[in-house]
Structures are given as structure tokens and as C-alpha cells.
């Protein structure tokens, strides 16, 4: 299957600071690719590049085989690239329902969006009138995911979904992500702590200091390498 999202030799920088030094990533429809690596490796930056939020210095961003380098985030979002950023991507002062209602800009009706969201995450229906900031961390991530799904994404970019959540909740969230991928969405997810992510990933890449040090199947070797990376030599 052709890749829906592909980064080819992407170099990018924040001002003078070079962050990515030739990153290659491919994600096919229905595939989950996990991008792992320590703090400051450039994982978030990679996602920002894929969403068109951060410009590339050199290299290419291909979507559906077409070179989309330089396209605006807005164009990419319209086409179906959805980035769920690090932290809780919700409006804390708005209710769950209002958070979802805001997604009607995508052209879907409020009813459709709520149906998608509440079917996948029934707990959100119970919390519909609660301010999003008072939800538990896991529920907030569910809401963020639901908001993402409301855009009917073809490519889903997830940044540290697990941040600050209990392992059980993370596992459940990732089950949902796997389910989303099964519907043909290309998922690129970023994680520091790999276990849960590797559980659903079809493919994994380890990013260290802006370079993909290793990629392959999320097998034992990669796991061993990761633990060495975090516990051993790095930093």
C-alpha cells in the first residue's frame, strides 16, 4: 500500500538550532507507526512538520504520494491531516459539549459529531455538561481524540497521548487508537514510554537527536534497544 504520509529526508530548525537531520517516516492507510525517543529528540517537531505547522529546511513532506511541502496547516487540516498536540488539547473552560460543538467548523453537524464522540467514548456523554478542565486526564485525552475524530481525519498525528496517565487508561486509549486505524486512518504516534504504544504499532522508529536511529517491527530487539536508550548511554 502506498504511504499516505511520508517524510523524506526532512531537515528543520528553530532559528539557528537544527533539530531534525534527515528524518524519514512512512505511514500507510490503516497503519500505526510509533515514533519513539528521549526528550528533545525532535518527535514533536516531526509531527509539527507533518501537519504543516513547522516549515522544512530541506526534504519533502508527501501526502498521498503528492509533494505537499510548504502547504499551509489549514490546507492540510482541510484535506484530513489531524494533529492532536502534546498536553491536553481541549478548552478547559468550555463544557465537553461546547468543545465538541466547536468542531462544527469542519462542516459536520453538531449531532453527527456528538454521535461519533459519544459512541466511541460513552463517558463523554455522561460528562457532556461538565467543564473540560474538570475532567480526569484520561477523559480529557478522550475528548481531544473525539475532537480529532470529528474532523474525519485520514492521517492522525498523536503527540504523547499517555502523558501523565495511568497505564491502564493508556492501554484503553490506545485500544481506541488501534480501532481508529482499523478504519483506514494512517496513525503516526509519538511516545517516550514505549510499552503501550508498541502494543498497537505496526511499525516503530526510534528518533535520537533528530535522526532515526533505528526502525522496524516493534519486536523485542527494539524494546531492548529502547530500554538501553533510556536507562543507559543517552544523556
Amino acid at each position: 500500500m502506498n504511504a499516505l504520509l511520508e517524510l523524506r529526508g526532512v531537515h528543520t530548525a528553530y532559528g539557528e538550532l537544527s533539530v531534525l537531520h534527515g528524518v524519514d517516516v512512512r505511514v500507510a492507510p490503516g497503519e500505526v507507526v510509533a515514533l519513539l525517543g528521549p526528550n528533545g529528540a525532535g518527535k514533536t517537531t516531526t509531527l509539527r512538520v507533518a501537519a504543516g505547522v513547522h516549515p522544512v529546511r530541506s526534504g519533502q513532506l508527501l501526502l498521498g504520494g503528492r509533494d505537499m511541502t510548504g502547504a499551509t496547516p489549514r490546507d492540510l487540516a482541510r484535506a484530513g491531516v489531524c494533529l492532536i498536540p502534546e498536553g491536553r488539547g481541549v478548552f478547559p473552560n468550555l463544557s465537553v459539549r461546547d468543545n465538541l460543538t466547536m468542531m462544527t467548523f469542519t462542516g459536520h453537524s453538531r449531532k453527527q459529531i456528538e454521535e461519533i464522540a459519544f459512541t466511541r467514548f460513552p463517558i463523554l456523554a455522561e460528562r457532556a455538561s461538565q467543564a473540560a478542565g474538570t475532567l480526569s486526564g484520561g477523559e480529557q485525552q478522550m475528548l481531544a481524540l473525539a475532537r480529532g475524530l470529528a474532523t474525519d481525519p485520514a492521517v492522525l498525528l498523536l503527540d504523547e497521548l499517555s502523558m501523565g496517565l495511568a497505564p491502564l487508561i493508556v492501554t484503553r486509549l490506545y485500544e481506541q487508537v488501534a480501532e481508529i486505524a482499523r478504519q483506514g486512518v494512517a496513525v503516526l504516534l509519538v511516545e517516550q514510554f514505549a510499552a503501550a504504544a508498541l502494543g498497537i504499532a505496526d511499525h516503530a522508529a526510534v528518533l535520537v537527536r533528530g535522526r532515526v536511529e533505528r526502525q522496524g517491527l516493534p519486536d523485542g530487539v527494539l524494546r531492548a534497544e529502547l530500554s538501553a536508550l533510556y536507562l543507559g548511554s543517552s544523556s
Binding site: L4, G65, V185
Partner: peptide, 15 residues
């Protein structure tokens, strides 16, 4: 969805 994505991208004029 994937095909529609590709088609919509093809229609998209990258400024």
C-alpha cells in the same frame, strides 16, 4: 477515506 484524501489533495492548490 484514503482515496478521497488523495483526490482532495490533488484538487488542492498548494499556494
Amino acid at each position: 477515506r484514503a482515496d478521497r484524501f488523495v483526490r482532495e489533495l490533488a484538487d488542492l492548490k498548494v499556494a
